[in-house]
């Protein structure tokens, strides 16, 4: 991905702090994300990755610092240096340009896939029902689910549900997509189909912040990797720098744990593929 270093950041977080019940879980995060950039957030469990992502689209309110998305200060109106909290409606309006995918998909279970995707454009943007559904079908086609448009979430596999969730977020034509461990609730054999959609999205120039433990995705797709620990950014740089030549002990420790896990996953995947191949061969000895 080529990004113009001189262009103003699409996302700018400055000294973001956040505490839950007096316990500080974000301790002054600084992060700039340029337009079209793919940033992967890495870090051990509890390091504050999810919390930071949720702060960007105001699902959590921050205690200190500032977050701007496309020049808009999130959650507040800055009137001559005095911050005024925005109303719920204005916060909702700020979220429209930011898509989010959750670890547990959070599809609306009482709506079919196409209804899930068309819901927000109709309700929020006031697009006509017919047009919204047509566009929803196009989006579902894009994530490879044209034939599942009329299925309910309960009738879909995890990987399919997450792809519907991505289509649902894209239907609002966001400037920015946030992914919170989009594949970690999936069976290993379903991870690939979701990552493929995300790769495509990155290739089309979508700005993305992705929390994931998929190191392959981080290495190949990320423009930048940010390693967080205990509510702070420990180091950041290109995948080659952070994953290839980590400078900090904590990063190295985390990566070696990840590496061990990845080797294990690769072994399971290979076994899986071998078993499948064997089954295919048994079924069709001529082929």
């Amino acid at each position: 991905m080529t990004t113009d270093a001189a262009a103003p950041a699409l996302v700018r977080a400055l000294n973001v702090t956040k505490a839950f019940h007096g316990v500080e879980v974000l301790k002054g995060i600084d992060l700039d994300v340029r337009r079209g950039e793919v940033v992967v957030l890495l870090g051990p469990s509890g390091s504050g990755k999810t919390t930071f992502l949720r702060c960007i689209n105001q699902l959590e309110t921050i205690d200190g610092g500032r977050i701007w998305v496309d020049g808009d200060l999130m959650g507040y109106d800055d009137r001559g240096g005095v911050l005024h909290r925005l109303t719920d409606r204005r916060i909702a309006a700020q979220r429209r340009d930011i898509g989010m995918c959750f670890q547990r998909f959070n599809l609306f279970p009482h709506m079919t896939a196409v209804e899930n995707v068309a819901e927000a454009p109709v309700q929020v943007k006031g697009i006509g029902k017919r047009e919204a559904r047509e566009r929803a079908r196009t989006l579902l086609d894009r994530v490879g689910l044209a034939d599942k448009a009329d299925s309910y979430p309960a009738q879909l596999s995890g990987g399919q549900q997450q792809r519907v969730a991505i289509a649902r977020a894209l239907a609002m034509e966001p400037k920015l997509m946030l992914f919170d461990e989009p594949t970690s609730a999936l069976d290993p054999e379903l991870v690939g189909e979701v990552l493929a959609v995300m790769r495509e999205l990155a290739a089309e120039g979508m700005t993305m912040i992705v929390v994931t433990h998929e190191m392959g995705f981080a290495r190949e797709v990320a423009d930048r990797v940010v390693f967080m620990d205990a509510g702070a950014v420990v180091e950041h740089g290109t995948p080659a720098e952070v994953i290839g030549r980590p400078q900090h002990e904590r990063t190295r420790a985390f990566l070696s744990r990840m590496h061990a896990q990845e080797t294990e996953h690769a072994r399971v995947a290979a076994e899986h593929a071998a078993a499948e191949e064997a089954a295919l061969a048994a079924e069709d000895p001529a082929g």
């Binding site: 719920d88 979220r95 989010m100 959750f102 959070n106 609306f108 927000a120 309700q123 977020a169 609002m172």
Partner: peptide, 22 residues
């Protein structure tokens, strides 16, 4: 599930519509 409200909020749906529709 709270995730339902959050998904609707993340899509930019205001609170009233989130309650009624989701």
């Amino acid at each position: 599930d709270r995730g339902q409200t959050e998904a609707a909020q993340a899509l930019g749906m205001p609170p009233g519509k989130t309650m009624r529709r989701i």
